[in-house]
């Protein structure tokens, strides 16, 4: 069985011939589309390394069947920067040393972008910590991650009325 599936990946339309319905979005990106920036840490929705934005919402790509998301809009770490200009979250991660080995980093950053978009954590570090708890970092870069997300939120002017007060 082969099925033609269409996605918008990092703002570009992609049509993929799927010969196997078992392929997850994660394995589609990594093994078939050479978008290996999205990482596989557990493949079971337990670590967050594979976080992407699917139709604007952060999800674990490892638990999503590609075939089921026909027509979806996908943003991965490769599509975040505009040319050479880093996204504010990316820049903040470097500035706050919010990474060590870097393996969880693409997932952390996509999750942070999702979190900021959700607009509920604002500049409250405790809400950021909770909101980023779906992304494990075994190196223990959590302090930098929290600081980077707060700083990026501020830089993006996305803190919201309530928290800006």
């Amino acid at each position: 069985m082969s099925m033609s599936v269409t996605f918008t990946i990092n703002r570009a339309a992609r049509t993929v011939e799927l010969d196997d319905p078992r392929v997850t979005l994660l394995d589609l990106l990594r093994e078939r589309l050479d978008l290996a920036g999205t990482k596989k840490g557990c493949d079971r929705g337990q670590c967050g390394a594979c976080t992407i934005l699917l139709n604007g919402r952060r999800v674990n790509a490892c638990l999503a069947l590609a075939i089921s998301h026909d027509g979806a809009e996908i943003l991965t770490i490769e599509g975040l920067a505009e040319g050479d200009a880093l996204h504010p979250v990316q820049a903040a991660f470097i500035e706050h040393d919010a990474l060590q080995c870097g393996f969880c980093t693409p997932g952390q950053i996509m999750s942070a972008v999702g979190l900021i978009g959700e607009g509920e954590a604002g500049l409250d570090p405790e809400r950021v910590r909770e909101g980023m708890s779906g992304n494990l970092c075994r190196c223990g870069a959590y302090r930098g991650i929290t600081e980077a997300v707060v700083a990026a939120t501020q830089a993006m002017g996305a803190a919201g009325q309530e928290d800006a007060a």
Partner: peptide, 9 residues
């Protein structure tokens, strides 16, 4: 429950 990513899905 779970994580923000899982709750979104």
């Amino acid at each position: 429950g779970a994580s923000a990513q899982l709750r979104n899905a």
